[in-house]
Design a binder for these strands. Structure first.
Lengths: 207, 207
DNA sequence: AAGCCGTTTGACCAATCGGTCGGGAACAGG
DNA sequence: CCTGTTCCCGACCGATTGGTCAAACGGCTT
């Protein structure tokens, strides 16, 4: 029987469009002010909808935030998932660095949303950090360890190597205003960073 | 006339103590929730004082925040100021890395306060970033360039080298919960980071 | 035309926000 | 003791917060 149960509603076109609009506006506001600093009125204005209408599509302010975070986590972890144990070690890691830097460049608001959440103790993400994230990192760290034991990359603490990639790439999104203030006009931080990080990790990983 | 105007009062012992208590409590709250997310009631409770009493010592919530930020900037820039053009290049830079990592370890709340502010566009710190910070960084970047031209360290973009130090050291304070969640129990992130960052920058700076 | 269901909103609510005010408590110096 | 200044707080204020609700709107089928 092709009968759909009463639980699963197919989502109208209007619902899909408005949910998207709301999430887009919410990302803008949450990433700038953090969860507690953001207001539903700001999000509503950004989305061009009335406040009660927001709460017609999402049950609460927190639900919007949680939806953003969970959607974000997948995209955020994808580059690390792509790390291939069968590939060339140095090039695999450099690919990871490159993809992570591209995320910072193309989705800085998502990076800042994540940073805001972790900065405040990750109250809505602890499970994901200790669960999916930790197991994924542990798995990939094991690959790095094997590469190091085979003498194909330098012998470095694998977890901290991964942390350094996170730190160096996300820094360009999270501290964007500081970087631009210090560099002054006439610079493309991300383009310069790409070459610098390439050099950095090639030197670091050389056995 | 040498008459003292009504503006300069010497600050009572009680004033000094209570101002300190308030700033300590405010640091705790601001660093966790950001400016907009923090409330005077939280700060007052943390300081063990009544809310009107806070506003007896500080004219507004923003004044407390500004006071914290300006005090912070000095301590934050001190390690970079200490970079000595007459010293051994690699050791000078490694000293800087070490001092910066110690700041993250010993004053993580200050680091998160700073991160929160920059993350939100540094609305109360733009002047400092484009003024004192930029000129200090430019000055020290010139030293790095000279060292590179003399072949005493690797030829790297000096600004991004400094950014990498900031990113790698502050990451351990700002993303503390993520790092501990991924590492699991039984780790001392800062001790492990010290060795890792020492290795990283020695490899990176080698000509 | 009628009815229906997804959509939208103005009016409203209790709670909380940053900040004020007037008066009392504590501590001087005389 | 009295007097003045510093210190402290309960009560309160207007504005804003996240969230509710009943009523109305819209397009679609019958």
């Amino acid at each position: 029987m092709e009968d759909e149960g009463p639980a699963e509603r197919p989502l109208t076109r209007i619902q899909q469009k408005n949910r998207q609009t709301i999430l887009e506006a919410a990302l803008e506001v949450f990433s700038q002010h953090g969860f507690r600093g953001a207001t539903l009125d700001q999000i509503a204005e950004g989305a061009g909808l009335s406040k009660p209408n927001l709460l017609y599509y999402f049950p609460s302010k927190e639900a919007i935030h949680v939806e953003l975070l969970s959607t974000l986590m997948d995209a955020w972890l994808a580059p690390l998932r792509a790390l291939d144990p069968a590939g060339d070690p140095v090039e695999e890691i450099l690919d990871y660095v490159r993809r992570k830097l591209e995320l910072s460049r193309d989705y800085p608001r998502e990076s800042r949303l994540f940073a805001n959440e972790v900065l405040q103790g990750a109250p809505r993400m602890m499970d994901a950090l200790e669960g999916d994230l930790k197991s994924l990192v542990d798995e990939k760290a094991a690959i790095l360890t094997r590469w190091a034991e085979a003498g194909r990359i330098a012998d470095l603490p694998p977890h901290h190597l991964i942390f350094s990639i996170w730190a160096l790439t996300q820094h360009y999104a999270d501290f964007d205003v500081q970087i631009r203030a210090v560099l002054g006009p006439g610079h493309d931080p991300y383009e310069e960073a790409e070459g610098f990080l390439d050099t950095l990790f090639r030197k670091l990983l050389a056995p």
